[in-house]
């Protein structure tokens, strides 16, 4: 077992983990951060996307021990209580989700994309979120959601 200390959604979490434990499994089963989900085993679907030190990563493709000393943000740390992050608001307003399983990853990827490119074109959005698969929406309204989020966050049109 290895000792790790990771700041997850603002809380310093200390834990003993098996080296083989994936970051996503530690978040879900160790910390109860079940908002972040697993959709595949080949790093394709992106459902498990979180931010590690401010950058999007697939938490199924990282060991929990590798997050030692890092700052992790999950969908559950994006806003507190009844607050809504603008990206969350935009996805609701634009019907950018149906079953909601890809949504945590899709939202976190959007946060990451907009932090680097506050005013992306449709093509940049589609390229920017292609590491996240959705089976319900056909992406049409997800793209609209990202555009609207950019608008809400002050990107110029």
């Amino acid at each position: 077992m290895q000792h790790i200390s990771v700041t997850v959604d603002g809380t310093v979490c200390e834990s003993e983990v098996e080296p083989r434990t994936l970051l996503v499994h530690w978040l879900r089963e160790g910390l109860g951060k079940v908002g972040t989900v697993v959709g595949c085993d080949t790093s394709n679907c992106g459902a498990c996307t979180i931010l590690v030190d401010g950058q999007s990563v697939k938490s199924c493709s990282m060991l929990a021990v590798q997050a030692d000393g890092c700052k992790v943000t999950t969908i559950q740390g994006l806003s507190t209580g009844d607050d809504w992050h603008p990206v969350q608001t935009a996805f609701k307003e634009c019907h950018g989700l149906q079953c909601g399983y890809c949504t945590p990853g899709m939202v976190m990827s959007t946060v990451d994309l907009l932090s680097e490119n506050p005013n992306p074109t449709e093509e940049e959005i589609r390229e920017g979120i292609h590491g996240n698969l959705c089976r319900c929406t056909g992406y049409h309204n997800i793209v609209k959601s990202v555009q609207y989020a950019a608008e809400l966050m002050g990107g110029t049109k």
Partner: peptide, 10 residues
């Protein structure tokens, strides 16, 4: 769904 306060079977 947008806040990750979900109840998936897993």
């Amino acid at each position: 769904l947008l806040h990750g306060r979900t109840n998936w079977t897993d």
